[in-house]
Design a protein around this nucleic acid. Structure first.
Lengths: 343, 343
DNA sequence: AACAAAAATGCAATCGATTGCATAAAATAC
DNA sequence: GTATTTTATGCAATCGATTGCATTTTTGTT
């Protein structure tokens, strides 16, 4: 027996006043007298009035909703980022609609359209692994709807960008491996169409060059960095005539599977072989040996993204003043690369 | 220079037809001729028309949006569950709004109201650790808006419930510890106001009784099961005159911190002390020793929750036919409780 | 060619809240 | 007591899509 909701018109009728007055009273408009406001508010709570946000959204052309598009919701980095977004958004009175691209370009395209049709006030995006065209974001760009890109960004958009310095981090990690005495350092890379993996790769290469180490094409493998991919890669590396003695992995997942495999076949980490990952997944700290990795401040990145987006939505900042924010990140040295301790 | 969007009226004017016809054509209403439909659709794509979902929502009183309320978005169980929901929801044409209670009753109350005002078509909820009143869900119940509870449920609502059998799982885990030769088994429990922790606790107690083992009150500690809480608890257990030789933990996080602490102080797991956790976090498999735990099918639970909810929203099932679905779950025996191997 | 039946389209109200402008009521000024 | 402000409230249009009912156009029948 779904009885229709209480509306401002119901309140108005009951009190013999107009709906406009009710609306203004509930929004605390100074044009309404305190007495009337009190009367209206009392009745509103008595009848259990709940504002219909949809109607308000339609009229005001604002939804107080922000959309998030990430590759996978249940990856720790992303879910923690989302948690940071939600934290700030909720306090500012915004809802968060999440969608995941599953790292598929096609799905990303569809969810972006869907968010647009739902008239979100802005979106926060990390693009899929397959993404190398960015036309679908023009939907938003053309209407000047605020966007924030993070981690894996779309280039050439008027939008804020929130990143870590992947180049520097990979450089530091590689230098660290060199300092530990590793002689042949390999790299398991993700798709270089993405700024993140491209940056990591370049940081790796630059560190080798700075140290006058040869760059060997055999020592770089590209794939999607899943657990299976990590396994495939380490087997391939070990099959080389002149195999590496260390790998810088594009993420922690692949680093983990390498570590497990190396343990299985009796190659000691870090004594015989060093591994460094990327992103500091929760398991990296507790696996044996613990994985050296790069810490990314996911929660804070989410908070920052939400702040920038909401400020822009509410025009608290000068438009066109788009920022690329590099968040602090650092190398966490753990057991998997602490070779010197054993020399 | 935000130019206002293309609407059905713009399309109608351009083609000298009425907006109703445009609306019907875009919705593929059979009352419109194919020729007209084609004409309209062509123009729509040419002008980049995007439907305004808000307007449609207001008129149809449906938002094609479902709300999720979980304690913490970035807990693996929950983020994987959400991923399952999103998976099904997206295919059915629904958006997902997420919010987290942060395990605070007050925030849960606020987000539930917010979701209601946003007129979500239904909600999927796992309540906060603090929740022991459920009045705020009457907002939905009174209007017959579908709800699905999972994991931590609100009792006494006309709603679907998706659970695992916490009692049975805890029972199995306890029996397993007994079978391994543990003599004094402790339990670190969460708030028993929640069905989950209450079930686990009762399963633990029942297993002791079935095996004619004494129940010692000192051996049960209640807290919030954080990493710090796990540490506090294990220290307290070890201080007893007659300390336990095993702990069944209410979750994996607390189990992890116990394992780390025991390793630090030189108590061998599982030889001297056994640990079983709950929920199978990603780290549990890879920590040394790997944590024995209970597997919960989070993704599938999310899919099932979304299916039930959407079916009810779309009235595909007989109302009042509310189900309590017990999902399959099992004990994963790993190193942390495999004492017999060392006897 | 006339008329019934079927198909296609249009009119206008509706969903619920907001808001520019107008009006009514109260307060103040002279 | 009238004119002028100030304060409080109401009217009616609006946001964009949907839909019951009415109307127009086309098709089919004899």
């Amino acid at each position: 027996m779904k009885k229709t909701s209480v509306t401002i018109h119901d309140l108005a009728r009951e009190l013999n006043i107009s709906a406009s007055t009710v609306s203004r009273a509930l929004n605390d408009n100074p044009r309404i007298s305190q007495a009337t406001k009190d009367k209206i508010r009392t009745l509103a709570t008595k009848l259990g009035y709940q504002p219909n946000t949809i109607a308000s959204n339609l009229r005001t052309q604002k939804t107080h909703t922000i959309g998030i598009v990430v590759p996978l919701i249940n990856r720790y980095f992303f879910s923690t980022f989302i948690s940071g977004v939600e934290d700030v958004a909720f306090e500012a009175g915004y809802n968060v609609i999440i969608s995941q691209s599953k790292d598929l370009f096609d799905k990303e395209n569809r969810v972006v359209h869907s968010l647009f049709s739902n008239r979100v006030d802005g979106i926060i995006v990390s693009v899929s692994m397959q993404t190398n065209k960015y036309d679908h974001f023009n939907l938003f760009a053309n209407k000047n709807i605020p966007m924030v890109f993070f981690d894996r960004i779309a280039p050439d958009f008027k939008a804020h960008k929130i990143l870590i310095d992947d180049f520097k981090c990979a450089h530091m990690a590689t230098q660290h491996l060199i300092d530990q005495g590793c002689k042949r350092i390999a790299h398991l890379a993700g798709p270089t169409s993405l700024n993140t993996y491209r940056g990591r790769m370049n940081g790796y290469l630059d560190a080798l060059k700075k140290n006058k180490l040869p760059v060997d094409e055999e020592l770089v493998i590209y794939n999607r960095l899943t657990r299976v991919d990590g396994l495939t890669a380490i087997k391939q590396f070990l099959k080389l005539k002149n195999p590496p003695d260390a790998v810088l992995c594009g993420n922690d997942t692949s680093a983990l599977s390498m570590i497990i495999y190396l343990r299985e076949i009796g190659i000691r980490v870090p004594e015989d072989f060093c591994i460094v990952g990327f992103s500091n997944e929760p398991f990296s700290e507790v696996v044996t040996p613990a994985i050296s990795t790069i810490r990314q401040p996911a929660f804070e990145m989410g908070q920052k993204a939400a702040e920038l987006l909401i400020d822009e939505i509410e025009q608290k900042r000068i438009p066109e003043n788009y920022q690329t924010i590099i968040m602090p990140s650092d190398l966490i040295i753990r057991e998997s690369s602490s070779k010197k301790l054993y020399d």
